[in-house]
Design a protein around this nucleic acid. Structure first.
Length: 372
RNA sequence: UCACUACUUACUGAAUUG
């Protein structure tokens, strides 16, 4: 059983919830660990309903089981369910508190995150980091830095979080300052620096950093490819892409984006067609490429072919029609969408303005249900 | 048989839309 539990965990980490479940069901007397592990294996791979029904059916729910399923809902961005679980838990540990705090942090519910933080009976460095991340990842750089300075201690995650906040805000000097100030650095710290250089347009320095790192992983490689992509160097991106020890869908999509960014749609297409694994982001990348480089027909073909669409797929196509002057078609698409966001409306408004239809733009603006 | 121990949950980095 001990070995089976390890197997289930391994399958979960390898994104094989199916095998994890099979292994679990083959155990004659699953213990608490077996349940907790299989629940997490399902949850982490998006099988939240399986996770939930296992949780509901398990003989005795430990606080760890509760926290696992709570974290699963948080990861699925179902804040309401996460909160409901938190409120109904028979007992809570520091981990449970930090999990709900992290859920609010992730959704940018800063005020609620603060409340949780203040209410927690105890805190550790991870709780502090969770609230720090709430500030850092939602553009509250000043609060983030103040909070960072007020923390009783820092670990490498704290440093990385604050450093990345400034990197994403394209404050290169500040980013480097934190990087130099930290006592120990890990892969994440180094990868942040690559991103910072890339966003600031310093490709050579980004590459120098990449070359001088003590070690690299898939994310590091992808960050460097993205650096070339973002700065309009698909050729160099490809060189690196070919040298990578492994590819995953994120790396491949970054490479596709390197081509689409420059409008090299034939190259993009060739790569896209050769990929064995793509996801919605990859499809959206192709869709965006065709849209932004005047290939409306191809964009539509992609849109109609892709297995599923998210809000940004719709937004891209709407913007493409709108920019090309097919405002009626754009509006028609807009009415067919299930979940609009601000970008959908903005695309249409901008298009009307671009074509001098001030009145229509205004009336669309007025009819919006949400604005940011 | 019992006990002990071990395995499970929370924070930071990479790809697509204004």
């Amino acid at each position: 059983r001990y070995l089976s539990n390890l197997m289930i965990e391994a399958y979960g980490k390898c994104h094989s919830p199916q095998l994890a479940l099979e292994t679990f069901h083959a155990i004659k007397n699953p213990n608490l660990f077996s349940y907790n592990i299989v629940i997490e294996a399902c949850a982490k791979n998006g099988w939240i309903d399986n996770a939930r029904s296992l949780f509901d059916r398990m003989p005795l729910q430990h606080v760890i089981s509760w926290t696992t399923i709570l974290a699963a809902y948080a990861q699925a961005r179902d804040l309401a369910q996460a909160r409901k679980l938190f409120d109904s838990m028979p007992e809570r540990t520091l981990v449970s508190w930090t999990a709900i705090l992290g859920a609010y942090a992730q959704e940018g519910e800063i005020e609620k995150a603060k409340v949780v933080f203040d209410l927690m009976p105890e805190r550790n460095i991870i709780s502090w980091n969770a609230l720090l991340a709430a500030f850092a990842q939602h553009g509250h750089l000043e609060s983030a830095e103040l909070f960072f300075d007020s923390m009783p201690e820092h670990n490498v995650s704290s440093w990385n979080a604050i450093m990345d906040a400034f990197a994403q805000d394209n404050q290169l000097q500040k980013t480097l300052h934190f990087f130099q100030a930290m006592a120990e650095r890990d892969l994440i710290s180094w990868t942040c620096v690559i991103t910072a250089y890339s966003l600031a347009g310093h490709l050579v320095l980004a590459r120098k950093t990449f070359d001088s790192m003590p070690e690299r992983d898939l994310v590091t490689w992808t960050a460097m490819i993205q650096a070339y992509a973002h700065n309009g160097e698909p050729h160099k991106a490809r060189e690196l892409f070919e040298k990578m020890p492994f590819h995953n869908v994120v790396a491949s999509t970054a490479m596709v984006a390197a081509y689409t960014f420059r409008g090299q749609m034939d190259e993009a297409r060739k790569l896209f067609d050769s990929l064995t694994k793509v996801n919605m982001v990859t499809w959206n990348t192709m869709l965006t490429g065709y849209s932004q480089h005047g290939h409306l027909e191809q964009a539509r073909a992609i849109f109609d072919t892709m297995p599923e669409r998210d809000t940004s797929s719709w937004n891209v196509l709407i913007a493409a029609y709108a920019q090309a002057g097919y405002l009626v078609e754009a509006e028609k698409l807009l009415t067919r969408m299930e979940r609009l966001d601000e970008a959908s409306w903005t695309a249409l408004i901008v298009a009307h303005l671009y074509h001098g239809h001030l009145h229509e733009a205004k009336s669309i603006f007025d009819s919006m249900t949400v604005r940011d």
